[in-house]
Amino acid sequence: MLSVESLASQMAAAEPWPENASLYQLPTDDQILLSDAASCLAVQTFLKMCNLPVLVVFRSSAESMSPSGKVPFIHAGNHVVSELGPIVQFVRAKGHSLSESLNEQEKAEMKAYMELVNNSLLTAELYILWCDKNVSSLISRPRYGSPFPFPLDTILARQKQREIVRRMKAVGWAEKTREQVHDEVDQSCRALSQRLGNHKYFFGSPTELDALVFGHLYSLLTTDIPGYSIPEIIRNYPNLTNFCKNIDTHFFLQSNTSKV
């Protein structure tokens, strides 16, 4: 898999970033779930940080269209690349990189923090969406099944839930309680908050870590999940909320107003 990806990146290097590049994600109003919304926002932020224009396309079948089965993915030229990691590699092959200036130690540190976000925040999101009976029956399953006709809506949502629960069991999360999940989120927020300190970005200038952290924290802050108090936990770390506000103003609000 890796060799295929690196080969694809090498082939991609010959061409510049295409003007008609598109980012495919799920419709935000009635279908997308917290974990996918966070991943999509992270990729969108990353591309904005690289100053690469993309057209965002909302497709209810985006998950099936993605080569890895996960959203988001980009369609650039003849290439289809999904998820943040491979997209970062692909973009680097096109000559755009945010982490080029970091030294080896910083790069390793950045990777470690990205792993932390994926292993704790993303896993916590998936736990809440699919392992919590209340949330999964009230929110996740109906939203996930919404684009499909009866009885596919139920079948596909149940199938998805089984798959995620199996994955949660493998990483030892399936049996966690709500308090333990709150604890996990709190611990990773503390780690991120300590690393960030009073800086604007984790490593001086924006990197893919900033995009990933922003994607998850912003999505968690703006989503109200019955029975959970994740936004309150994050708000205990004012530097993290400021970090989100800063990126939001700098890359989203400003670029929007400049277009208008």
Binding site: S64, M65, L152, I155
Partner: peptide
């Protein structure tokens, strides 16, 4: 019929990729 369409390979053309998904 519940039909699930997907691409045979990564190199499938994009119009075929756009057909991927579930339908009844």
């Amino acid at each position: 019929v519940w039909r699930e369409l997907s691409c045979l390979s990564r190199t499938a053309s994009f119009p075929v990729r756009e057909e991927s998904g579930h339908s009844l």
